[in-house]
Write a protein that binds this DNA or RNA. Sequence first.
DNA 1: TTATTTATTTTGAATGAGTCAAGATATGCT
DNA 2: AGCATATCTTGACTCATTCAAAATAAATAA
Lengths: 143, 143
Amino acid sequence: MTTSEGIEKVLRDASMRVTRPRVAVLAAVTAHPHADTETIIEAVRQEHPTVSHQAVYDSLKLLTSLGLLRQIQPHGHIARYEARVGDNHHHVVCRSCGSLADVDCAVGAAPCLHASDHHGFTIDEAEVIYWGLCPNCQSTKTA
Amino acid sequence: MTTSEGIEKVLRDASMRVTRPRVAVLAAVTAHPHADTETIIEAVRQEHPTVSHQAVYDSLKLLTSLGLLRQIQPHGHIARYEARVGDNHHHVVCRSCGSLADVDCAVGAAPCLHASDHHGFTIDEAEVIYWGLCPNCQSTKTA
DNA sequence: TTATTTATTTTGAATGAGTCAAGATATGCT
DNA sequence: AGCATATCTTGACTCATTCAAAATAAATAA
């Protein structure tokens, strides 16, 4: 899915050009799950030192809109990205250090997706963020 | 709960001073649910023209940490606040116009709060944001 | 393969929500 | 009323992200 051929097909199907920055960004996010933009820029530049930050921003936005990436941005934190997509998993964020971990869905396939009263909204996604303390910060706080 | 006496008690219990900006901010948020900071600043200044933006930022942060307010900040949007607190309700955000509505909990009291695998995190809150289209934008899109 | 078209990228400046810091002010206590 | 200091005002500053114009390179056709 996230292989080199995979992205080419998705991009071409969307009438988008297959460019070095785009492929590199997808690879970088795949290699660094939950990385922020700065980290992704650095990772991309390991292989392609001339790629601009703007190209990374553009690629992240494009790949996200095409469904190849997912953006995570908890309150008070900058945006992070992950390549794990389409399996309806959620995230835990540590209130203390900001570290982030994946959490599989609690109840079956798409829990929480059926709100009791939509106010007429059509809902296509339920995003869940759990807040708490990571193991590290728990011990630090109590120590 | 959100009355003038209510906030005084909460502030005093927390050893915080009862100041004009704090009371005004709580009143403004109560009167303008889901308002962003800019809107709250304007609302506060209707009554108290000399209150600084910094005081509003500080008050919002304090009142939020005391549990009198709740901050909502969907991806790509600036922070908004609401005074409805402690009833575990969630929000729908329109992908098109960014409008926001309350949604009561889908399944009983605290759904989704029990993630299957915490990775050792202690979870104290499950935040749910539904994404979709508001009634207005639905008709605009299809029209 | 080379020329052509134009989507993307580079570069560098700009935006703007939010934060920082120092001095002025007002709250709560005695 | 007067004191101590929490809070506010003012104004500069941060920094993730966006904007814009010129340069570049991907895709198509000759």
